[in-house]
Amino acid sequence: MKPEELEAARDRLVPDLVADGLRVLFCGINPGLMTAATGHHFARPGNRFWPVLHLSGFTPRLLPPAEQAQILAHGLGITNVVARASARADELTPEEYREGGRILRAKVERLRPAWLAVVGVTAYRTAFGEPKARIGPQATTIGSTRIWALPNPSGLNAHWTAQSMAEEYGRLRAAVENEDGARVRP
């Protein structure tokens, strides 16, 4: 994609990929320019979201961003803390994160996913006003929805490898499956 095509996508909104009663609603920080240009979440080639989703067992095969709608069949969805597209998350203001957190809470109350998985602990901290939050399950809930902070899958997040991210996403998947099993037991 040409640089001018990416720049033209700045500030665009990308529709959520959601449904009522999801097992997990994954929440990115905000759409990148490639995502906004293509309309596919986590579309930048260096982004590890789709490989990590597969490596952690959430999807039976590696889905390309163009096949994103298939995750709904697995009880998964995608939204963002901040709706507007930017080249980098550091272009967002703390006010945008806080307002995004308020909008996200209302969205979660309406959709009632079992889990909200925020992919970026720094975004979670700012959006939810929890500066000491760490990767993993959070004490905070939104109604009956539990929250898990996950590592950001951006290629810029060099502290985490695809494998170490897959292990953390896998911890969430195990918690989801334990919850699913508990709901079907008499």
Rank of each mutant, 00 (worst) to 15 (best):
M1F: 07
E5T: 11
R10V: 07
D11H: 03
V14C: 02
P15E: 12
P15V: 00
D16L: 00
D16T: 01
G21H: 05
R23Q: 11
R23N: 09
V24F: 07
L25S: 02
P31N: 06
L33F: 09
H40C: 14
G46L: 04
R48F: 11
W50Q: 07
P51Q: 03
L55Y: 12
T59D: 12
P60D: 13
A69S: 11
A69I: 10
A69G: 10
Q70E: 15
L72V: 04
A73N: 09
A73M: 04
G75I: 06
G75S: 07
G75V: 06
L76T: 13
L76E: 05
N80G: 09
N80E: 12
S86I: 00
R88P: 06
D90M: 12
E91V: 01
L92N: 10
E95W: 08
R105G: 00
A106P: 12
A106N: 11
V108M: 08
E109W: 10
P113V: 01
T122Q: 15
T122M: 03
A123I: 15
Y124A: 04
Y124D: 05
T126I: 15
A127R: 06
A133T: 13
R134V: 08
G136W: 11
P137H: 01
P137V: 07
A139H: 08
T141D: 04
G143S: 01
S144A: 14
T145Q: 11
R146T: 01
W148T: 05
P151T: 00
P153A: 06
T161N: 00
M165N: 00
A166N: 10
R171H: 14
A174R: 13
N178D: 14
N178P: 02
E179N: 05
E179C: 04
D180S: 10
P186Y: 12
P186G: 12
